[in-house]
Simulated assay, not measured.
Amino acid sequence: AITALALELGGTVTGEHGVGRLKSGWLTRELDPVALDVHHAVKAAFDPAGRLNPGNVLSPRPEG
């Protein structure tokens, strides 16, 4: 309920330490598709093999 209210009021699900596993599902409610694509592109650029925190905040995108 707190996270939903934060988004309703124009806030964010992130904090000083970013988005943890608990809040990762809220990213799709907060960010538009373009912003999510940017996050995935940055993750892919710095971790092309997907070895760092695999699937914890950004789930792998299907190929295609």
Results as ranks from 00 to 15, higher is better:
V34G: 15
S59G: 14
I2Q: 14
G11A: 04
E8T: 12
G15F: 01
A45H: 07
D37I: 10
G15D: 04
G18I: 06
A6F: 08
F46M: 13
W26K: 06
L52H: 08
D47R: 05
G55H: 07
V42S: 01
L52F: 11
G50R: 01
N56K: 15
D37C: 12
N56G: 12
L22A: 13
V34I: 14
T14I: 11
A35P: 02
K43V: 05
V13D: 00
P54D: 08
G20T: 05
G64R: 10
R29W: 10
V13I: 09
L9A: 15
I2W: 09
G64Q: 10
N56L: 14
A45C: 07
S24Y: 05
I2C: 09
A1H: 13
A41Y: 05
H17L: 09
G50A: 06
F46Y: 15
L5K: 10
D32I: 07
P60K: 15
N56W: 15
R21F: 11
T14P: 02
K43M: 01
H17P: 00
A35C: 11
G55C: 01
G55W: 04
H39D: 07
K23T: 09
N56C: 10
A6I: 05
G20P: 05
L36S: 06
H17W: 11
E8M: 09
F46I: 13
W26D: 03
G64L: 08
P48C: 03
P54I: 04
G25T: 01
F46D: 03
N56H: 15
A41D: 07
L22M: 13
G50E: 09
E8S: 13
A44Q: 05
E63K: 14
G15S: 03
G55A: 00
L9Q: 15
P54Y: 09
P62S: 14
L27E: 00
K23D: 10
W26H: 04
A45W: 12
H40S: 07
E30D: 09
G15N: 02
V57Q: 03
G20S: 04
T12P: 04
P54G: 08
N53K: 07
A6N: 09
E8F: 06
R21P: 13
G25P: 02
H17T: 05
E16C: 04
L5S: 14
G18T: 02
R21W: 11
K43W: 06
G18L: 00
H40Q: 11
T3S: 13
V42G: 05
G10L: 02
R61T: 00
G50V: 03
T28Y: 14
G10I: 00
